[in-house]
């Protein structure tokens, strides 16, 4: 079964890559050359590598949380909003409360905590009223987004520039850079084994997985459904909020309207690509960040439109969501041959 799962994922990726190559050919390019260029731009160029790793860190941290909650069979589609709200909460600590003690630590934790609570809310609605978490988490993305617009275009707007951005934060709040890399990457690499342990070597993680594999069985065994739903969503929101606060404090140093631009959605693809396995998430996120950054550069240098990137990510998501069917189909094929 493990083998079929792997083959299904490979098939999903191949189809998406084939579609992207098709677009490159349509635009008169050479796919092989384009992929080499993407790789060079994303991993061999120092500036590109830094950008790729920054993207990978944010994607990876969000995906780690999603891999936990997806294992519980709960679909948190709201990482985007939780990420944005994490940035906003950190901004609140910096701009409004102006708490200096501890530098970036307080706003960072505040962002994570608020992100977690923002995700826990749909969890409460889920167990109290049975509201589908897909809808609530998705809709709350817009709430967070418009809140961001409100502060960026209004109350927190930088009075000096007049652009819809908030003022740059003072350096004492900024996350330190480690060897030219953003600290986020280190955080992701540290978190991955921690979450792996949580998921596969603790009672809590075991319960979460049982709930995800067969809800009725979890109830039959007397597990507390409320605890699993709310805590699972909280963890994923916490990490998305952490990523948002981290990007605010570590790479942008300010808030702007395109603060997130779809990271929370892309992280869903990364989590699925990693089969919701925390130890595979870092690899998947680095590869995917490389693809994303590489394809953006391609848009600039080779006139391949960014829409092609969206086409590929969308197709990849659709294919990955279908992996269980692909898996069954491959199994069926294997039996026939």
């Amino acid at each position: 079964m493990q083998l079929y799962r792997g083959l299904a994922t490979l098939l999903a990726v191949s189809i998406a890559v084939a579609a992207y190559s098709g677009v490159i050919i349509l635009y008169g390019g050479d796919p092989v050359e384009a992929y080499l260029k993407m790789f060079r731009n994303a991993f061999l160029d120092p500036y590109g590598l830094r950008e790729t790793m920054r993207l990978a860190a944010a994607l990876g941290i969000i995906s780690l949380g999603l891999s936990i909650v997806f294992r519980a069979g709960l679909w948190n589609i709201g990482a985007e909003g939780q990420y944005v709200l994490g940035g906003l909460a950190a901004g609140y600590v910096v701009y409004i409360l102006s708490l200096h003690g501890g530098g970036p630590v307080v706003p960072l934790l505040m962002g994570a905590l608020i992100g977690g609570l923002y995700a826990a809310l749909p969890g409460v609605l889920r167990w109290r009223l049975g509201v589908n978490e897909v809808l609530t988490t998705l809709m709350l993305n817009y709430v967070a987004l418009y809140l961001l617009y409100y502060v960026v275009y209004g109350v927190w707007r930088d009075p000096q520039t007049g652009f819809p951005v908030t003022p740059e934060i003072p350096s004492l709040y900024r996350l330190p850079e480690i060897g030219g890399f953003v600290g986020g990457l280190a955080i992701m690499l540290l978190l991955a084994p921690v979450l792996y342990h949580l998921l596969f070597h603790t009672r809590y993680g075991f319960k979460l997985r049982v709930y995800g594999l067969n809800r009725e069985a979890a109830e039959y065994a007397g597990y507390d459904r409320r605890m699993i739903i709310v805590s699972g969503l909280f963890i994923s929101g916490f990490l998305a909020g952490l990523a948002g606060a981290g990007d605010f404090l570590g790479s942008y140093y300010r808030l702007m309207p395109r603060f997130s631009s779809g990271l929370g959605y892309t992280a869903i693809i990364v989590a699925l690509l990693a089969s919701n396995h925390p130890l595979l998430v870092p690899i998947a996120s680095i590869l995917f960040a490389g693809f994303l950054y590489g394809s953006y550069t391609l848009a600039i240098v080779a006139d391949i439109p960014t829409e092609a990137t969206y086409l590929m990510t969308g197709l990849l998501l659709a294919m990955l969501v279908s992996t269980q069917y692909l898996e069954r189909w491959i199994g069926w094929l294997a039996r026939r041959l």
Partner: peptide, 26 residues
């Protein structure tokens, strides 16, 4: 002990036999 009318309620597919004991008496 309880075997429900629909026995699929009492197993966790994708988990081993051992884990299918463990989940019941965690």
């Amino acid at each position: 002990g309880y075997v429900p009318g629909n026995p699929y309620r009492a197993v966790v597919p994708g988990m081993s036999l051992v884990d299918n004991v463990r989940f019941r008496v965690l």
